[in-house]
């Protein structure tokens, strides 16, 4: 019944508001005009021409504080970490800022492809941080905080000085210094709309590779370019247990069968499901300390259970290094309690 009443209210709104009516000659009673507040709430995108960019300002110095509290745990202090995600900063040079082309993409002089090496448009950074970051609490940053974080990243990449005030106007100058701003091409056949010559993108769908369908004696010899390396043979578990046990084929045995393995630890499964294992190993440090290291330090300490429950809940910093652990608000109290007990009792890897 309650759902029905809501529908009635929605209909009443649609009829009652003064907004223009939809052109629904055919589909009467379907849909309604959006209110200005509704559009403002959801229309958050920022385009390369900065349409949609809210007013505000920030700088790298303010950005650093926000970064260390909310971003460094995944991305590292200098946005260089390759632990959880690919690095954000690195591989760009002052020469790239001048040319707008990142040389490391041509000469492979940097081991990774960082975000700053690739991204051509500063609007992309603003838009994405604003809509999706931080990872566990998206859309919680204010416009000024987003400006500060963008400024922090740009400063790390030496695009702007640390006292540069980034705002809705100065961001346009910054665009002219983006290291890979000239690094994109749309001259390809993989855009499914109109070509560039008709106001769209690309060459109108013309493929870049032209193969032929030869049927007989198509080549003299078969050149094997690559085969599965020895070390990768069993990296995907036991393939016998990834294939059907009936039919014309069976999976190749590439490891022990699960029947012979120890039963799965439900708490390890919980820690995995809740994302804890992204930062903690069982035996060793990933970003935060390994569970066995935590147990070794706290096992004999009175009140360790309550202390660690508090750290998981509220976050912590300084005990194991400078990278903070953010508060884990997505875990229920009961789950935190169980996980801490499991850690202190000597959690085992499978």
């Amino acid at each position: 019944m309650s759902r029905f009443s809501k529908t009635l209210i929605a209909l009443a709104l649609a009829v009652g508001t003064a907004a223009p009516v939809l052109a629904f000659d055919r589909y009467q009673g379907i849909g309604r005009a959006a209110t200005a507040a509704e559009v403002q709430a959801w229309d958050i995108d920022v385009r390369p021409d900065f349409a949609g960019l809210p007013k505000g300002s920030g700088d790298a110095i303010r950005g650093m504080d926000i970064w260390e509290a909310q971003c460094a745990s995944c991305h590292g202090y200098f946005a260089e970490s390759n632990e959880v995600f690919t690095p954000l900063v690195g591989g760009t040079t002052p020469a790239d800022i001048d040319s707008g082309r990142v040389a490391a993409l041509i000469n492979d002089s940097f081991p990774q492809r960082t975000t700053m090496m690739k991204v051509p448009t500063v609007s992309t950074l603003w838009d994405y941080i604003n809509r999706a970051m931080p990872w566990t609490a998206p859309k919680s940053l204010s416009a000024d905080e987003v400006y500060s974080l963008v400024a922090f990243l740009l400063n790390l990449a030496e695009v702007i000085p640390d006292d540069f005030e980034l705002n809705q106007d100065s961001i346009r100058e910054v665009q002219q210094r983006m290291p890979n701003r000239n690094g994109m091409t749309t001259d390809h056949g993989m855009w499914p709309g109109a070509p560039a010559s008709k106001g769209g993108i690309g060459n109108g769908g013309r493929p870049d590779v032209r193969a032929t369908a030869c049927m007989k004696d198509c080549k003299r010899e078969v050149v094997l370019a690559s085969a599965l390396p020895e070390h990768a043979q069993d990296a995907h578990g036991n393939l016998a247990e990834q294939n059907r046990p009936v039919g014309g084929v069976r999976g190749v045995q590439t490891g022990p069968s699960t029947a012979e393995q120890a039963p799965a630890d439900p708490l390890l499964a919980l820690a995995t499901e809740k994302g804890c294992m992204a930062c903690h190993g069982v035996a060793s440090k990933i970003i935060g300390p390994g569970y066995n290291e935590i147990a070794a330090r706290y096992r004999d300490q009175a009140g360790a259970q309550a202390l660690l429950v508090g750290k998981v809940k509220g976050g912590g910093q300084g005990t194991w290094g400078a990278i903070p652990m953010p508060p884990q608000s997505h875990l229920a109290d009961e789950e935190i309690d169980q996980l801490v007990r499991w850690i202190l009792s000597g959690a085992k890897a499978q």
Partner: peptide, 15 residues
């Protein structure tokens, strides 16, 4: 985005 040998990325490659 698809990185080509000349260091350019193909953008809006979709098909």
């Amino acid at each position: 985005i698809d990185l080509m040998p000349d260091g350019l990325h193909r953008q809006y490659s979709s098909i």
